[in-house]
């Protein structure tokens, strides 16, 4: 997936994104972080086709995106399940067009198995917990067999413990179905645990706030997954990313 000089502004004056260039390899996991309002979600919306850039192009496998692209699937911060449909029927919504009935049902069952919801397939969204709902939303996103999975703060609304289990689940899914994953997070720990590379969005220093966010830095995360959550060698990365977000870390400089 390639983003080439992508820019987006609202009302013609308020630039949100400017000159975003990013290449993502197939199967790579990339985290987008940035202070709130830095255009992370807006960038994700350009890739998902829910919004269109004012300038620049987004291409997947060399061909440009057309509207809401079948090759991408999105999951949002909220599960956004349809309350009048059962979990299984909600997952069905994500199936690609023209898939046979029997084939579709088998695929839904398979996905529910993958996100460990087989026993709750018949329940309505109001009858399951937030973490289960988010897993159902993930299954819905996976249903079309997307080449690119776009996640907008997918675990942001979950409690800390559920978030950790969901992160591991996402890695299991990625190991089983190696899609390219681009996800937005405000959690540096999460970015460092999951991603191959962390992209920091923000307005360049010295520019006015409405000049539009650019890619401030792209940080490769060393080590193979699953990573040790308590690994201390990442602490300098954590500190520099937090500084980039404008959060003072009180981390002694040059300890690495």
């Amino acid at each position: 997936m390639r983003l080439d000089a992508v820019a987006r502004s609202f009302d013609g004056t308020r630039n949100v994104l400017r000159d975003i260039n990013l290449d993502i390899a197939p199967g790579e996991i990339v985290a987008l972080i940035g202070a709130s309002g830095s255009g992370k979600s807006t960038l994700l919306r350009q890739v998902s086709g829910l919004d269109r850039p004012d300038a620049g192009t987004v291409t997947i496998d060399g061909t440009p995106l057309v509207g809401v692209d079948q090759r991408c699937a999105v999951a949002f911060q909220e599960p956004r399940l349809l309350p009048w449909r059962s979990v299984a029927h909600n997952v069905e919504v994500g199936l690609p067009r023209g898939i046979g009935r029997a084939h579709g049902r088998a695929r839904v069952a398979e996905l529910l198995e993958l996100v460990q919801l087989s026993d709750s397939a018949h329940l309505r969204p109001s009858q399951i917990s937030g973490g289960m709902a988010q897993r159902a939303a993930l299954a819905r996103a996976l249903a079309r067999g997307p080449g690119v999975l776009l996640l907008d703060e997918p675990f942001g609304a979950l409690d800390a413990l559920t978030r950790l289990t969901m992160q591991d689940l996402l890695l299991e899914i990625h190991a089983a179905v190696p899609a390219t994953i681009l996800f937005v997070t405000h959690d540096v720990e999460e970015a460092l645990y999951l991603a191959d590379r962390v992209v920091l969005l923000g307005v360049e220093s010295g520019y006015p706030p409405h000049s539009g966010a650019v890619i401030r830095s792209v940080v490769p995360v060393p080590g193979t997954r699953p990573r040790d959550r308590a690994r201390s060698s990442l602490s300098h990365l954590r500190a520099s990313l937090l500084e980039g977000l404008g959060v003072p870390t009180h981390h002694p400089a040059h300890t690495f």
């Binding site: 829910l50 999105v74 349809l82």
Partner: peptide, 20 residues
């Protein structure tokens, strides 16, 4: 948000009306 989710999965027009 539900309408947008529907659109994100390729639903539009009458199909979106029926779904959401």
């Amino acid at each position: 948000q539900l309408v947008e989710a529907g659109r994100a999965y390729g639903f539009g027009g009458l199909r979106l009306l029926r779904l959401v």
